[in-house]
């Protein structure tokens, strides 16, 4: 009888450990989503949800070139670029899950980062030229 109780104790204990692991697995592994601005691969500034609600404009310089980042009504876009092609301006506002805004001549990348979200794909083919 003593042995019987002991076995059940261990089974329940083991089940509890499994439950704990599952809960830990489901817990968010970072903060909320944010928009990161990268120049030449380095994060130079970021905007969290609260900061995205403050409308403003920022001019980012790189080797004599400039990009104007505009934050308006919670969305981020590039509204001016010194480069001739203007691909980054034409991209329009950044969308969560959408393609990053990239200015190749000025080595600028603006992308939405959400560390709590498990994306269902590992990569996207054709998202950038």
């Amino acid at each position: 009888m003593k042995l019987y109780l002991k076995s059940w104790f261990w089974v329940i204990f083991f089940a509890l450990v499994c439950c704990c692991c599952f809960v830990i697995y489901l817990l968010p592994k970072g903060g909320n989503g944010y928009v990161g601005v990268y120049q030449n691969g380095e994060l130079i500034c970021s905007f969290d949800e609260e900061e995205l609600n403050e409308d403003r404009e920022l001019v980012i310089e790189y080797m004599g070139g400039t990009n104007t980042i505009s934050i308006s009504e919670g969305s981020v876009s590039i509204t001016q670029a010194s480069c001739p092609d203007g691909d980054c301006v034409r991209h329009g506002p950044l969308e969560p899950g959408g393609t990053p805004i990239i200015c190749l001549p000025n080595r600028l990348v603006i992308k939405y980062i959400d560390e709590t979200k498990n994306d269902d794909v590992d990569a996207v083919s054709g998202d950038v030229k």
């Binding site: 991209h91 969308e95 899950g97 959408g98 393609t99 269902d120 794909v121 590992d122 990569a123 996207v124 083919s125 054709g126 998202d127």
Partner: peptide, 19 residues
């Protein structure tokens, strides 16, 4: 297997599917 999304040529916030 890796899951690779294929970009939609019609909307840059969408994919047409996954390979």
């Amino acid at each position: 297997l890796w899951r690779v999304g294929i970009m939609s040529p019609f909307d840059d916030s969408e994919r047409i599917g996954v390979i």
